[in-house]
Amino acid sequence: MTLVAVLFWILAGFTALSALAVTFTTRIVRSAVWLLFTLAGTAGLFFLLGAEFLGAAQLLIYVGGTMVLVIFGVMLTASHPASSLQTNIAEWSLALSVGVLLYAVLCVVLFSVPAVTDAPEETSRSLLASKYLGSALLGNSSATPAAWLTGFPSEKPLPRTRVHYLLPFEIVSIHLLVVLVGAAYLARAKRRPETKP
């Protein structure tokens, strides 16, 4: 029971309970608060896994950005607080049964994944430093470790080559620009007269 294990169980329990609370809360603002805790728990798990840059990025982008957006959306579309939209029992039972079934299938699949644990002396190590991530994203592949060319398992191991992620990086930046313009356009204040329901 190393420190990593203690921290894992605390963080995983916190994340899982918050995810349950997101699903089963009736009031939408509370649901957003539990989602915030789930995202913070996920960031903690990223830190525990050694992906420090990702943990900080998750907190900055998700908690500091997306959740604020969601809460603003909730507050701008709020109806009367007493009338929270309730789902009836039939739909809940259908959703829960599908969920439990899916979880059972996933567990069966997961047991077929070969178990991997750390060697006893390296229970906690950092993943690649952020400078390698930056080098990969900027197209400087000589600074990053070699990767498999495809993910297909084969009998003879494929030669390892160096890859970089400059193209997805550029695509994502253009994508974000498009999303910015599109969201601003979609959510603009419309000045046409009231339409009949």
Binding site: L36, E52, A56, L59, L60, V63, G64, G65, V68, I71
Partner: peptide, 25 residues
């Protein structure tokens, strides 16, 4: 210190916003 210290401090200071929103709501 932490290898991504600058990003971490910025990320933590940006979580303050949520408390303000919840207080207001």
């Amino acid at each position: 210190a932490l290898s991504i210290g600058v990003l971490f401090v910025l990320a933590m200071l940006s979580t303050e916003v949520f408390g303000i929103l919840l207080a207001g709501y």
